[in-house]
């Protein structure tokens, strides 16, 4: 059996803001075709990790490669080329509120592929149907949508250009449990349908178990545990154990007082 192909490789990545160290020798491999979920508390560097890969933030040191191409410290042209492979669903969906839903999704298509306006619109409507949004919703503006509909539209925009890699930033945060589960199902469905490599960050364990092939836990700027989703309950790691059972007592000290 050959080694699984690595899609995203992060090695010894450091990032700090002023005195606050966020990523401290961060290593992570995302295998091609898998769905990896990174769990961890609020403010431990999950979002910073994604932003470093996308080039929204640049790491202080270390190496990040996507398909073997180095992106740490790369210029905007290189990042644009790499980002063309990536689709991202933002926590608040981050739909452009000056455009209708269908224009949002079509924007993603025309930014990546050389297709005409009308063809892009057709593709956008298909993708919206894929996430369960009807054509009448397509003509509305994001401010007229509910939270769940925004997430669906954001998902449609993320998958619109058929990316090889999908990022999900807290996909269920801010949704009721039912809608959260619908989004989980949609994510699983979309990842299977497109065959994309998925990297999700969340603190919702229910969502993590549902989406993940593998789970990694981040604490103090490092991955402290990584394994298949079915191993998580048998893992002896006290940090992981505390987090997945949501206990306040244990090795994880929350910085409540400042």
């Amino acid at each position: 059996m050959s080694e699984p192909q690595i899609k995203i490789r992060m090695r010894d990545v450091h990032k700090r803001f002023g005195a606050k160290v966020v990523l401290d020798g961060f290593d992570l491999d995302v295998r091609a075709g898998e769905s990896l979920v990174v769990i961890g508390g609020s403010g431990v560097g999950k979002s910073v990790m994604l932003k470093c890969i996308l080039g929204i933030l640049s790491p202080d040191s270390g190496s990040i490669t996507v398909d073997g191409i180095e992106v740490a410290g790369a210029g905007s042209t290189e990042h644009e080329a790499v980002n063309a492979k990536i689709g991202m669903l933002f926590q608040g969906a981050a739909l452009f509120d000056s455009m209708t839903v269908v224009e949002n999704v079509a924007f993603s298509v025309t930014a990546r592929h050389n297709v005409g306006r009308r063809a892009a619109r057709e593709i956008a409507l298909q993708k919206l149907a894929m996430v369960g949004l009807k054509p009448d919703v397509a003509e509305r503006y994001p401010s007229e949508l509910s939270g769940g509909m925004k997430k669906r539209a954001g998902l449609a925009r993320a998958i619109a250009a058929d990316p090889e890699i999908l990022f999900f930033d807290e996909p269920t945060t801010g949704l009721d449990p039912l809608m959260g589960d619908i989004i989980n199902d949609l994510i699983v469905h979309c990842v299977e349908e497109t065959g994309a490599t998925a990297l999700t960050i969340t603190h919702d364990m229910h969502s993590a178990r549902k989406i993940a092939d593998r789970i990694a836990m981040i604490y103090n700027g490092k991955i402290i545990w990584i394994g298949n989703v079915d191993e998580i309950d048998r893992a002896a790691d006290p940090y992981l154990d505390q987090f997945i059972h949501g206990r306040t007592e244990g090795p994880i000290k929350m910085a409540v007082r400042r």
């Binding site: 991202m88 933002f90 981050a94 993603s108």
Partner: peptide, 20 residues
Amino acid sequence: EIGTMRVTEQVDALTTLSTN
């Protein structure tokens, strides 16, 4: 307008959509 786009991550979303 740009400030609201910044704080609601729409500026970051542009970057992820390969648009400078």
